[in-house]
Amino acid sequence: MSVILKVEHLAKSFGGVKAVSDVSFEVRAGELKALIGPNGAGKSTCFNMLMGQLKPSSGRVSLDGQDITGHSPRDVWRRGVGRTFQITGTYQSMTVAENVQMALISHHRKIYAFLPRAHLMYRDEALALLALVGMEDQANRACAILAYGDLKRLELAIALAHEPRLLLMDEPTAGMAPRERIALMQLTADIVAERGISVLFTEHDMDVVFAHSHHIMVLNRGELIADGTAAQVRANARVQEVYLGGGTLFAQEGAHA
């Protein structure tokens, strides 16, 4: 599989504090890769550098072989990187379909022409994306009355409206019930398999991580201490030491879920 994202010696310091230190990894086409670690490990800082919200102190980020280090979030987005957030952000006064239509309008660069007829633009495409995430029957509902799990699925449809090659998902199942978590990540895995999208996600629920990830990376105090399959990460002595001190990885992480 070809490399979509390549991170080389990425680092970020805030004053004398090293939030991320010499992190290198790759994400390949069609890969579902998890980035885990204790609270304060540097996961969000790493994500924010990849998406352009933070400028690295040093290192390089490449997308499809093109250097995007320090580019603006909009430029990174335009190049095919989408993102979902731990806290959902939708237009509460709009319907489910209208939220996706707004994303499509932006993707097609029609944002300045949309006002008079926004509710008519890209309606069929929006419904197709909602069908993909299992929400077509809620297309005309207001976002303000959606259940939290449905908001998460809507956010995924909005992210897919841009046709990303790489999707960054920041704790996608946060705040969801266990059954909803499993369903959302199975949906994501199905989309990865069907469309060949690459996904890098952070997550505290280890059942989700180990059930759906092709590969898992572990950060601790800003350093990447493991990068491998689920079996390799389970058996990694340093991961066990960091998380456990002799306990189990799953019990430690589950306490944060």
Rank of each mutant, 00 (worst) to 15 (best):
F47R: 07
G59V: 10
G59F: 13
M51L: 14
S24T: 09
A34S: 09
G42C: 03
K33A: 02
G30C: 03
I68C: 07
E31I: 04
V27Q: 01
R78V: 04
N39S: 05
R28K: 15
L50E: 00
L35W: 05
F25C: 02
T69Y: 13
L35R: 02
T45P: 10
A29I: 04
G40W: 12
E26T: 14
E26P: 06
S57T: 15
G80T: 05
L63V: 07
K43M: 05
S72I: 00
G80P: 11
T45R: 04
G70P: 06
L50H: 01
G59K: 12
E31F: 07
K33I: 09
T69P: 13
V76T: 02
I36R: 01
G80Y: 13
K33Q: 08
T69I: 11
Q66I: 13
S44A: 08
K43V: 06
H71Q: 15
K43G: 03
H71E: 13
P73L: 07
M49T: 01
G37H: 08
G52A: 00
N48L: 11
P38W: 11
R60H: 10
V76Y: 00
C46M: 15
S57V: 11
M49F: 07
V27T: 04
G59W: 12
F47H: 10
S58W: 07
D64M: 14
G37K: 09
S44L: 08
E26L: 08
L32Y: 04
W77P: 00
K33E: 01
G42M: 03
Q66G: 09
L54C: 09
C46K: 03
S57H: 11
D75A: 15
V61K: 03
G40F: 10
I36M: 09
M51C: 14
V23Y: 09
K55L: 06
G65H: 12
E31H: 05
D64T: 08
D67S: 07
P56E: 01
T45I: 04
G42A: 05
S44P: 08
P73Y: 11
I68Q: 02
Q66H: 14
G40C: 06
S72P: 03
P38M: 09
G42V: 02
S24L: 04
D22Q: 08
L32F: 12
P38E: 02
A41S: 15
Q66P: 04
D67I: 06
R74C: 04
L50G: 01
P73F: 13
K55Q: 13
R74Y: 12
D22F: 11
D64P: 04
K55S: 08
V61H: 03
M49R: 05
A29M: 10
L54W: 09
C46I: 09
P56C: 07
K33T: 00
V27C: 04
E31P: 06
L63P: 05
N39F: 13
G42R: 02
A41E: 02
R79C: 03
K43F: 12
D67W: 10
K33G: 02
G80V: 07
S24H: 05
D22I: 11
R28F: 12
P56F: 07
S44T: 15
M49Y: 06
W77Q: 12
R74Q: 13
Q53R: 12
G40R: 05
N48C: 09
